[in-house]
């Protein structure tokens, strides 16, 4: 076992465990918004860790460049995907969990019909 393979496999394992934790969150958390928190962010951070691990393990320059581009792309697209899902949940009237402390959102009314984003 070289240092390279230990480091790479460690990162990959850490990433996979984060993805697994996101899966547990997907099952356990009470409403869509909380689940979106766990599933989009923890999972994508896990994916970034896995890809970094593969960067360490993979041979060759082209593989490393491809993976680095994929990682940057991932970091830029995750927030947008998470926001779009949360917005879709909000617009489709997904209920909040009973445990919610405060709800300041205004329920989408008729005036929202014209303001499509």
């Amino acid at each position: 076992m070289t240092l390279q393979s230990v480091l790479g496999q460690g990162l990959a394992l850490l990433g996979v465990l984060l993805i697994g934790a996101a899966g547990v969150g997907l099952v356990r958390l009470p409403d869509v918004y909380n689940r979106a928190n766990a599933a989009t962010k923890a999972a994508s951070l896990g994916l970034v860790c896995v890809l970094l691990g593969v960067v360490v393990l993979a041979p060759g320059v082209s593989a490393v460049v491809t993976l680095l581009v994929a990682i940057v792309l991932q970091l830029f697209t995750v927030p947008i995907a998470g926001y779009k899902i949360a917005e879709a949940a909000h617009r489709s009237g997904a209920p909040l969990a009973p445990a919610t402390v405060r709800d300041e959102r205004d329920v989408p009314g008729p005036e929202d019909e014209t303001g499509r984003t």
Binding site: G8, A12, G15, V16, I19, A22, G23, L26, V32, R35, A36, A39, T40, A43, S44, G46, L47, V50, L51, V54, L57, A58, A63, L67, A81, I85, A86, A88, A89, S92, A94, P95
Partner: peptide, 26 residues
């Protein structure tokens, strides 16, 4: 329970598949 949950599940599944492909490459 909601359609947003299903969209979320698809997104999550995609992340899992991509991670799987990366690990399989190694």
């Amino acid at each position: 329970p909601t359609d947003a949950d299903r969209a979320l599940a698809v997104d999550y599944g995609f992340v899992v598949v991509v991670a799987g492909i990366a690990l399989l490459a190694v």
